[in-house]
Amino acid sequence: MAAPQVSIDLAAFHAAFSLGGVLAALAGARTLTWGWSPAATFAMTAALSTAVGAAAAPALLRSGGTPDTAAPPARRRTPRRIRGLAVLAFMIMLCEGVANDWSVLHLRDLGDLGASPGTAALAFGAFSAAMTGGRLLADRLAARHGPVAVLRIGSSLAASGLTVAALSPWAAPALAGWAVLGAGLSGAVPQLFSAAGHHDRESSGANVSRVAGLGYLGMLAGPAVIGPLTRAVPLGLTLLLPAALCVAAAAAAGLVRPRPGAGLRTGRETEART
């Protein structure tokens, strides 16, 4: 009996994460124009998040059946391809971390941009909105053109957008650059996670956790890397470092090419065959 196919719409699933960023940016921009303090904004956000989490809890998956008492598999050495995917995730998510923490400061404080706090907050909103839209489309693009093309073209687009944002002396092109960065990065991480999960079905969970773990380390490291650099060079120039990482990710995009016989299908492909 053939094993059932698993529906995979990983990029669309990640879009919900980006949508939260859009809503947060809009809420922050609005409360700033109302003159709210950060403490009041955070308190409101915490209350809303708690309410949404409580409402969603009944829909979460629940464990059932008897626990698996089989002996755990022997520890294996991490494959070279998984290590490469983890490094790519670190680079890509470092760029996301930079956008999360520095996009607003970039518009507010850099040179002649002089954006108001409310306008500056829209930098992260533009990034998150473009990432949300891109992730809603990324599964279809990967099914039609392949994950390598999504990662290579997306990373190249992200590098171009971040370079425009870094070098622009005006707010409007800088906002557009942050949006292009979000659109370019939108499909990258889902392709990396999918490639890790399909490298070896017996170790798919461990491989995804390795790639995701180093990736989220990159998201935390991004803001910390940029901060010290701003003491030596202007903020705009420091943003060229993550742009260079996007170029490197584009060059290494071949790592996400599906292995022969991996059987990777998106959810829409699976539905079409059933």
Rank of each mutant, 00 (worst) to 15 (best):
S156Y: 08
R144T: 01
R210W: 00
H198C: 00
Q5R: 15
L60T: 13
G197T: 12
A89H: 02
L157C: 13
I153P: 00
D112N: 13
R75H: 13
P147R: 08
S128Y: 00
L241D: 13
V52L: 11
S49N: 07
I153K: 02
V104S: 14
V256C: 04
R210Q: 08
L110N: 11
L23E: 06
G133Y: 10
R76F: 07
V180M: 08
A252R: 11
A251N: 11
T270E: 13
G182F: 03
P258M: 00
T274W: 05
A250Q: 08
S156C: 12
G177M: 03
T69G: 05
V52W: 11
A99Y: 08
A195H: 08
A3I: 08
S18E: 10
S128G: 10
R62V: 15
T50P: 03
L214A: 01
S160V: 15
A179P: 00
A99N: 08
A206H: 05
R201I: 14
G236T: 14
P147I: 01
A253W: 06
V148T: 06
R76Q: 15
A166Q: 06
V104P: 12
G114R: 13
P258C: 01
V87T: 13
Y216W: 01
A51S: 08
A115I: 09
L94E: 09
R144W: 12
P4Q: 07
V225E: 07
F127M: 01
A224M: 10
M131K: 04
A250G: 14
F17C: 07
R231Q: 12
D112W: 11
H106A: 13
G236V: 13
A59M: 14
V256G: 06
S18W: 03
V22H: 09
G97F: 01
G28A: 06
R257V: 01
H106L: 13
R135Q: 05
L192K: 07
R76M: 07
P67D: 02
T270D: 11
